[in-house]
Amino acid sequence: MPGLPGRVGVTGKPSRKSVLLILGPTASGKTQVAARVAARAGAEVISADARAIYQGLEIGTARPPEEVLRRVPHHLIGILPPTEGYDAARFRADCERLVEEIHARGHRAIVVGGSTLYVRAITQGLFPGPAADRALRRRLASRPLAELYQKLRRVDPQAAARIRPQDRVRIVRALEVYYLTGRPISDHWGRERPFPWPLVKVGLKLKRDELLRRIESRLERMFSLGLVEEARRLWELGLPPDAPAAHTIGYRELFEFFSGKCSLEDAKRRILANTKAYARRQLAFFRREPGVHWIDVTGRSPEEVGEEVFRLWLSGPPGGQYLSEEKGV
């Protein structure tokens, strides 16, 4: 593909290609919009979904349909077994590698997802901390969450003040860093390495009633597509307690049903309640993210929203390289 026009920065050299980041709460339509923009721009999509990366979780993670995956190249979807650990550090490394490869093919890169840790890994960066220790995480995962949080309050009160007592993932990571380095994770804050490419950040939001309606409608569709059967196949694998699927909304509640701890209707109600709570946490997190172009998608089609997102990408980030409207990228 021909070279792309750029703006000259303060160094006198053209800026690197910008990367589009589409974020927003679950059920906001990110997947459909990203596919529209990618088709319009000749781009490839990198998933920032901490669960869509796993095999066997197609229905419960609302994975893009096969028709979309055939038409638009997607990355980090369905590539890992449900027992393998994967974290924000690995995502950041994979994301950088994929952007390099996508740009080398002459294409643009779109990152899309709602996993807050993954989004933060590219918008705020990661400190050069220790890699995940699977054995240590397994030991921590076996302890009650309240006990872990109290431990974090003792060894790192600054981190405990910023991490919700219900956020097992971040609590475990904070304790993991403490045990592996002998220093609290808060000591490492401020040493984050920035993302190598300028980001155009676009957030999708909806009116509250519409978001809740979409969540309810999507859950009904998941059940009709066979979510219970998909979850049972995972359950019958005998996954270890620290397997990602065992802590994924839609599966963990059904696992309780399979083990006789609740009825199917109770499990379904819990999935709905937990999904709505997750959407609220996502929104609270993303609203703190600076520099996001927020778009209200209530009552709008993916085609209409995709065109607006594409136009925003055309304008580019401050000091970044602009898309060429004439060539589509």
Rank of each mutant, 00 (worst) to 15 (best):
V202M: 14
E303I: 01
K261M: 13
R51E: 11
D156V: 02
V45E: 04
Y278G: 00
T116K: 13
E325C: 05
G113F: 03
H247T: 12
E253P: 09
R311S: 06
D156L: 04
P157A: 03
K17E: 14
E44A: 14
I122D: 02
R7D: 11
A43L: 14
I22K: 01
R270N: 05
R193H: 11
A62V: 12
D87Y: 04
V228C: 04
P64G: 13
Y86D: 05
L180G: 01
P241L: 13
D156G: 05
G29S: 04
G125I: 01
P65F: 05
R7V: 14
R164G: 08
R134F: 01
S186F: 08
H107Q: 10
I122R: 00
P241R: 11
K13V: 07
G129E: 10
G328H: 11
A267E: 05
L225D: 14
A121K: 01
A141G: 15
R168H: 05
Y179M: 12
P194M: 12
V10F: 09
R191T: 12
F127I: 00
L180I: 05
A279C: 13
P14Y: 09
L117T: 08
S142D: 12
R143K: 14
V292Q: 10
V200Y: 02
E100L: 09
G9H: 01
S18N: 08
R280T: 11
G106Y: 04
G182E: 10
I185L: 13
A231R: 04
V112A: 15
V72G: 03
P5F: 14
V292L: 09
A109W: 04
G306S: 09
P82G: 10
V202H: 09
H293C: 00
T123L: 02
P130D: 03
S315H: 10
I249M: 03
E253F: 08
E192R: 12
A35F: 04
H75P: 00
S217C: 00
A231Q: 11
L264S: 08
A277Q: 13
R270I: 01
S47L: 03
F286N: 08
R162T: 02
M222T: 02
R134A: 13
V45C: 09
L76S: 05
G24E: 13
A48C: 11
I163F: 07
L323T: 06
I295E: 02
L227W: 10
E229N: 06
T31A: 09
P318T: 07
V72Y: 02
D187S: 15
A159I: 10
S15D: 02
R213C: 02
V202Y: 15
G29T: 05
H247L: 08
R218L: 14
E304F: 05
P81T: 14
L152E: 04
A273F: 09
L21W: 00
